[in-house]
């Protein structure tokens, strides 16, 4: 399977690329967003700010959204998860609206939420084989508020929020699996398997 990694041009894509390659998938980094639709599988990495990222997606948003809603597996990481929702308090601009709901600022005493925190999940293929109680690396000031039943993992930081969502082969994680050691690598290889089974 060939995984397309969306490159908004602002950050580190090495780790996510390496981690996905370790799962046996091939990767290509896509700078021209209009070439994302029609990919076998899309990953939206977690670097940058909401406004800048959705601006970069620009006119390609609609075709990407259609591609994902009609079955292209996708994974959004951190900011990448947030842009899969409808809009964000962080900055104006429309998200991909693959998931219903908005992105809001975390209500905690110390923001960004930076460091390793626990994710609790019920049985879900995205967390297959991950030791319960594992911590994952977070670096976020905003969180997604899903308005549909897609939450598969939750995390506590000042409040309880959705740290993982999934609808079929379309997944979002608020943490950085590519920066979360072995549990993170396992989540990525689980995603690759979910995606391969779906295509």
């Amino acid at each position: 399977m060939m995984v397309s990694i969306a490159d908004y041009g602002v950050g580190n894509l090495h780790s996510i690329s390496k981690a996905i390659e370790r799962s046996g998938a091939k990767i290509r980094v896509v700078k021209d967003m209009s070439r994302l639709a029609g990919s076998e599988c899309i990953v939206f990495p977690g670097v940058g700010a909401f406004g800048a990222a959705v601006e970069k997606l620009g006119p390609a948003s609609e075709s990407i959204r259609r591609s994902i809603t009609s079955g292209t597996p996708a994974l959004g990481v951190c900011l990448g998860m947030q842009i899969m929702f409808e809009r964000s308090e962080e900055s104006p601009g429309d998200g991909l609206s693959v998931f219903k709901g908005e992105v809001e600022r975390l209500s905690a005493a110390r923001v960004p939420h930076m460091g390793w925190n626990e994710v609790s999940w019920d049985d879900d293929p995205l967390f297959d084989g991950v030791p319960p109680g594992s911590e994952f690396y977070f670096a976020n000031s905003y969180v997604c508020r899903p308005e549909e039943e897609v939450t598969i993992g939750e995390t506590e930081y000042g409040e309880r929020f959705a740290s993982a969502v999934r609808k079929g082969a379309v997944c979002g994680v608020q943490f950085h699996p590519e920066k979360s050691g072995l549990p993170g690598l396992k989540v990525l290889s689980n995603f690759v398997k979910i995606a391969e089974d779906a295509i």
Binding site: V10, G11, N12, H14, S15, K18, A19, V47, Y137, A139, H176, E178, K179, S180, G181, L182, G184, L185
Partner: peptide
């Protein structure tokens, strides 16, 4: 960055916006 799956911070001698960008593109988080 090839083999590191935890966050990496780079500092020292970062003088400009372009230096920040270059470090992030090289693989720093």
């Amino acid at each position: 960055a090839e083999n590191l799956f935890i966050p990496l911070t780079v500092g020292g001698g970062i003088r400009s916006f372009e230096d920040v960008r270059a470090n992030l593109l090289a693989g720093a988080d």
